[in-house]
């Protein structure tokens, strides 16, 4: 196809396109890894909340001229702490606490961005503008990817057991709260690097959809993360190609490719469907 050739020619000619592709690929890898833990811990809504809550941090970072990562992480973790605090100290359910905090943070971020009167385009923060990724953004993303991979490799068994069997983990003295907030920090880092590829609004799709595909195809956590990351990478490449060829917004293009891969997987994995049915009533024969 001529358009694919044009995309490849574009890649060899334009530095901005190479940077965009590399960044998208790295974001695909890290969101697949982190997303696997997010969906296994039943924290999809939390993932959405934290990524939205990063907005005031981004705005403040621009206003104060401090590092974006610091502003975003502080706000992301603050939101996670507040959500935990409200859920623990009242009879309100976790999702109610999430709904209150993330909408408030998002609203605050929206107002701060408009006050900042910066050249920063709110639309680009919300939906991404991957073709404007700078070389320093690329470097930052590479560092974040390294940090995410290191975190997951070093704490793999602790993350696994605290996701699979939190009571067991706590009972042998594992600091599950520490791991929870560690994961929240990692989540804000992923959000920061995904700001320009898919944007704040859609990052949750990159966390959940590829991980869900991995979940459908395997019974091993490590393989699930590998599949999720691969789906993230393929979505990034194909999405960027569509974005470049038909001048579409990059974030939504990437997310739609991921959703398409999920739809195919969902239809083709009857094994998981059987398991799901089985789950409701575990039979008792020896």
């Amino acid at each position: 196809m001529a358009s694919i050739q044009a995309f490849i020619t574009g890649l060899s000619q334009y530095n901005f396109l190479q940077t965009a592709l590399l960044t998208s690929i790295m974001v695909g890898v890290m969101s697949g890894i982190v997303g696997s833990f997010i969906i296994l811990r039943g924290m999809s809504l939390m993932g959405d909340a934290i990524s939205h809550s990063v907005l005031p941090g981004v705005a403040l970072a621009y206003m104060l001229g401090i590092n974006l990562v610091i502003g975003a992480s502080v706000m992301g973790v603050l939101a996670a702490v507040l959500i935990g605090y409200i859920a623990d100290r009242s009879a309100l359910k976790n999702d109610t606490a999430i709904g209150i905090i993330f909408s408030a943070f998002f609203a605050l971020g929206f107002i701060l961005i408009s006050l900042a009167e910066s050249t920063t385009n709110l639309h680009h923060i919300l939906f991404g503008n991957v073709l404007a990724v700078s070389d320093s953004d690329l470097k930052l993303t590479a560092w974040i990817l390294a940090a995410v991979v290191l975190f997951v490799v070093l704490f793999f068994k602790e993350l696994l057991i605290s996701s699979f069997d939190p009571t067991f983990a706590q009972a042998y003295g594992l600091k599950t709260t520490f791991l929870h907030y560690g994961l929240m920090v990692v989540l804000t880092l992923v959000t920061v690097s995904a700001l320009q590829t898919v944007g704040i609004i859609l990052i949750v799709a990159m966390l959940i959809t590829p991980a869900a595909v991995g979940f459908l195809w395997t019974n091993s956590l490590a393989k699930m993360m590998i599949i999720a990351s691969s789906v993230g990478v393929v979505s990034a490449i194909v999405g960027l190609y569509f974005s470049y060829t038909w001048n579409l917004a990059s974030g939504p293009a990437i997310v739609l490719v991921a959703a398409f891969i999920f739809a195919i997987s969902f239809l083709l994995s009857p094994k998981r469907f059987g398991n799901r049915l089985f789950k409701g009533g575990v039979s008792d024969e020896a």
């Binding site: 068994k157 696994l160 069997d165 067991f168 575990v282």
Partner: peptide, 26 residues
Amino acid sequence: YVQQRADLDLSFPIDVEHVVLTGVYP
């Protein structure tokens, strides 16, 4: 500690051997 089965996420992607292996984590 062997907890009540109802408290577990049975859909977690893990096999029998790996579940037993988590017994050495402590």
